[in-house]
Design a protein around this nucleic acid. Structure first.
Lengths: 168, 168
DNA sequence: AAAGATTGATTGCAATTGCATTTTTTACTG
DNA sequence: CAGTAAAAAATGCAATTGCAATCAATCTTT
């Protein structure tokens, strides 16, 4: 009856905070975080086969991809860019190092810190992965105009700026 | 040398497949899958605290959220909507069932299949989670116009249609 | 310049996850 | 309609993951 009352008699409508929309009203298909989770889920799944062939986990793959673009980052920076927990990344780097795909180097200026670098073998491993990533990317935007893509990416960048915790 | 040849002498340029852009050229910040991973990573992380308070894992949370919108799906359908592996979902449902948040019911028409339903307690659990999800959602689009949001979601929907495997 | 606070990275441990397999039931095919 | 294939869900098991604690080095503050 509490419930019925709450629904039937909005006693203080003007004092109530912003009326929270309900998920059911807007629908899953209009909820951006849901859509992004679905999309990235499938994107990542589509790469899993190639990753498995190279003996890579998601964390290792992301580290490789990031290292192919960012030069000699600190491990903590790499963790942010690659969207991987630091402890997870630490172990991923162990594996990549054992396979000779990356190299850890002490930072010259801060002896707590470690920088990471792709080896030649690591670069080659990523090169063999990249076509599949590019292909999955192509698939995503099939039939979507260049303008729409650009606008979409621009919004993604704004959103990331809105919610990121680190300013990298 | 095979490699060198391929690079140096594009014998059949008109037959060569689309020249693959390099990740380094376009930059991480313009690669949509990367941006989406960063964003969903932070979105999910921002909910982890509330989830932990309710004793939920990501899989359980997604199942709850989906069940709040989709009525009595089959487990296999729920797995697609919630973007969770079936085996993972099966165990997540075990946990949710033990906590009395969901109920499994045999499908009347197919005795292999099981349908899942939110209990009243399950609905309340989701209700207590939803404000945080809505808030994280608000944060994402802070300062972004209604038109831009709408266009963004429309593109997300197109992308999902492009890459989804199931037609759910 | 010493003590405490902070930062970078690793590690112990438990828990979540994913793959492959199994079990049960339904669908298909000759 | 018998027999095989396929689908739905659950389970065994190994591996990835995340949290918390740890170790080491630097920064801060008085």
């Amino acid at each position: 009856m509490n419930k019925a009352r709450a629904v039937d008699t909005p006693d203080i409508p003007e004092a109530s905070p912003a009326p929270l929309p309900r998920l059911g009203e807007m629908g899953l298909a209009n909820f951006a975080p849901y859509l992004m989770n679905r999309i990235t889920g499938r994107y990542n799944a589509s790469l899993r086969e190639e990753m498995a062939a190279l003996g890579l986990t998601t964390a290792k793959m992301r580290a490789l991809a990031t290292l192919s673009v960012i030069e000699r980052p600190l491990i903590r920076e790499l963790a942010v860019y690659a969207v991987v927990e630091q402890s997870t990344l630490s172990r991923a780097l162990d594996g990549l190092g054992a396979d000779g795909l990356i190299r850890r180097e002490p930072d010259p200026d801060d002896s707590r810190a470690t920088r990471v670098q792709l080896t030649e073998a690591g670069r080659m491993a990523f090169e063999s992965l990249w076509p599949h990533m590019a292909h999955a990317h192509e698939d995503m935007f099939r039939g979507i105009s260049e303008e729409e893509r650009a606008a979409f990416v621009a919004t993604l960048q704004k959103v990331l700026r809105n919610i990121r915790k680190h300013d990298i």
